[in-house]
């Protein structure tokens, strides 16, 4: 069974920069053709800010001809409306399209808060639009560890991240000190034999900050038809995501983030 059980904690110095939950369903065409005023009424108290974006999907033909200029031709054009509802502080967002509902936040504190924020929009979706089923349930956590914030400036990434995720940073000093770019990608089947953890471990930068961070982008999802009560699966994915991140980081990093047991 991957990723051992661990105590559930929240961190005083929280590395999370984004959490996204997405539930996909078979296309509901009316979402793309009529503005979701009933849906908005159900959630407007919590999510008063509204915006609509149009996403373009185009198919282009590029046929080179001898001696003739190559002119891209647009063959088909599809558009997708993406309705975005946000809290007043602009930290929590609900996105609704004809094929999914998603919630995202940069202010994730604990799972129970996330559940509370998503319950009403999810109920509104089911009541108003009656999706037939969900065919993809996904939960994505993006952690970005910043050494200066944690008093770990003297530590190497190999001291803080398990070798399988640290990659070349775990090699000898004369190599690890010269690493310019290091990305590890993995997909691991979880113990229900259906869900998958898609993991990207990389160094990068966040939001204009020049200090390099170590980023763990873990996207846990289940494909296939499931009933409209998504919470059992979401609870499972949340639990496994916690085990995954605790397994990837070392005790040194774990302690530096000042864990508080729940």
């Amino acid at each position: 069974m991957p990723f051992p059980v661990c105590e559930r904690v929240i961190y005083n110095i929280d590395p999370l920069i984004e959490v996204v939950c997405q539930l996909r369903f078979p296309p509901i065409l009316s979402i793309n053709t009529r503005e979701p005023s009933d849906f908005q009424e159900r959630i407007r108290g919590e999510y008063p800010i509204y915006k609509m974006e149009i996403e373009q999907q185009q198919q282009i033909s590029l046929e080179p001809q001898m001696g003739q200029p190559t002119i891209p031709r647009i063959l088909q054009t599809g558009t997708n409306r993406n309705y975005r509802f946000s809290t007043e502080d602009n930290q929590w967002h609900i996105n609704l399209t004809s094929t999914f509902i998603a919630m995202s936040t940069s202010k994730y504190l604990r799972w129970e808060d996330f559940q509370a924020k998503f319950t009403q929009p999810l109920e509104a979706l089911v009541d108003i639009y009656k999706p037939a089923f969900f065919d993809r349930i996904g939960l994505r956590y993006i952690d970005a560890f910043k050494r200066s914030e944690l008093g770990l400036c003297e530590k190497k990434w190999s001291d803080l991240i398990r070798p399988c995720a640290a990659g070349f940073f775990s090699s000898e000093e004369n190599i690890s000190s010269r690493v310019r770019m290091n990305s590890i990608r993995a997909e691991i089947t979880l113990d229900d034999d259906k869900s998958i953890a898609k993991i990207l471990a990389t160094t990068g930068n966040v939001n204009g900050d020049t200090e390099e961070r170590f980023i763990i982008d873990s996207d846990l999802y289940t494909l296939g038809k499931s009933g409209l009560d998504a919470w059992p699966k979401l609870n499972y994915l949340h639990d496994r995501s916690g085990r995954l991140i605790r397994w990837i980081i070392t005790d040194t990093l774990h302690e530096a983030m000042e864990p508080i047991e729940l």
Binding site: V20, C21, Q22, E55, Q56, Q57, Q58, Q59, I60, S61, L62, E63, L75, N80, N82, R84, H93, N95, T97, T99, F100, A102, S104, G138, L139, R140, K198, G204, N205, D219, Y221
Partner: peptide, 25 residues
């Protein structure tokens, strides 16, 4: 040759057309 814009079907995301990545050079 036809080119379809990539649809990010296999990623948990808030858009249909995938992530935007900012540039670090």
């Amino acid at each position: 040759m036809s080119i379809k814009q990539k649809k990010s079907m296999d990623e948990t995301n808030i858009t249909s057309t995938g992530n935007s990545i900012s540039i670090n050079s």
